[in-house]
Design a protein around this nucleic acid. Structure first.
Lengths: 219, 219
DNA sequence: TCCTCTATACTTAGGGA
DNA sequence: GTCCCTAAGTATAGAGG
């Protein structure tokens, strides 16, 4: 009841500079990441904006947030309606890209099949989820999901790495004067490109009822 | 001096749902975008994280924030990406696409492997369930599978995008009727296409702190 | 690692220039 | 569109579980 009862210090003012204590830094990261994502989702809702965020934690873990209309964007992207269709250029490259897209679409379909399969398997307790999900849960990272995700994703690392190196090669060769890829090589752990992440993030899985995507790739 | 003097209402609580008044929405967008970017940059500085944000305003304007090493990227951007010769790059693009396709097929195969893996995991999960795994464990695994596939897809998409962006850069010289505003401190507004954006996002780096990059691409 | 708790720093709605 | 202003809603530092 007395004044001395106060045991919490409340919010302290802090300088905006690197937090030195590792544990504290981690906590701060966690909290602020959550806060950032939440703000982002609010922005989306309030203003009808689309937002994609990629965060690379100091531990080379990447977190992403995305909110939009999934299928539309993805479709547009696949059909190329978004970026280049307006161009009249009928170059060899375009043709090849056309093919590439085609293949890509095939792969996509495949993926969807997989999703279906998975959904079936998941059906059993799929309903559990719908019970306690608040709207904001949809926009923020589901922690347990994230944690488990991390573990599993490691198995995917190799794959990503392989893909990445290809991209690196392409990018490096293409942008000779552009050494961003190399700069990126901080620990041999190179995050996969987040280019067009914008589009990517925009594309949620239709398999779920979530309006936002939050993904975590362990790099 | 009187009580009636108070003319400001102060912060009102608002519902997180679309702001209907257009002007108000615009203002909110502006304010919150700023706030979001600011939070992002703080996160970068405080935790040594790297953040990239893309915001698509309802008016088709895209704003991006990035916290890496701005100068380099920007520089290369403005000089390289925009003015690159399509003639010179054509052949190179050709080769790269060739390789890309090759890899694409390879990735396809790997997808199959992943499918198998998925099945195994699905089975295993079934067993675990019988044992005493928590509901959320199962749940997570399930989502992991989905995420994995998505992730995979994402990788492929990026692969494709990386190439596409190059091609776009060549042909998109026409699309880029960019305006250019560079204030560079906390507000760099730079016009770029998505292909370029790709590079940019990639270019997360240890670089600076409080001065993140903010880009604005006109579409 | 994440959640809880508290006190308080920070953000921002609404209105005006 | 930006900036200012104020009041008050919100996010979060630090400590503990």
């Amino acid at each position: 009841m007395e004044a001395s009862k106060q045991k919490n210090k409340g919010l302290q003012k802090i300088e905006i500079k690197r937090v030195e204590r590792k544990s504290a830094r981690q906590v701060t990261f966690s909290k602020r990441k959550k806060g950032l994502f939440n703000k982002a989702s609010e922005l989306c809702v309030l203003c009808g904006a689309e937002v994609a965020i990629v965060i690379m934690s100091p531990h080379k873990r990447a977190f992403t947030f995305g909110h939009p209309n999934p299928d539309d964007v993805l479709d547009r992207f696949l059909t190329g309606a978004g970026a280049e269709s307006s161009l009249a250029a009928t170059t060899v490259e375009d043709e090849k890209l056309e093919r590439l897209k085609q293949e890509y679409v095939e792969l996509l379909n495949r993926l969807k099949e997989e999703e279906k399969k998975r959904d079936e398997i998941a059906k059993k307790r799929g309903n559990d989820r719908a019970n306690g999900v608040f709207w904001w849960d949809q926009y923020s990272i589901d922690d347990m999901e994230r944690d488990e995700l991390e573990l599993y994703l490691k198995s995917l690392e190799k794959l990503k790495t392989s893909v990445k190196s290809k991209v690196d090669e392409l990018a490096a060769a293409s942008v000779a004067s552009n050494n961003f890829v190399n700069q990126f090589n901080i620990d041999n752990n190179i995050p996969i490109d987040f280019g067009s992440e914008f589009d990517d993030l925009c594309c949620l899985l239709e398999g779920t009822n979530e309006d936002g995507i939050l993904r975590n790739l362990d790099l």
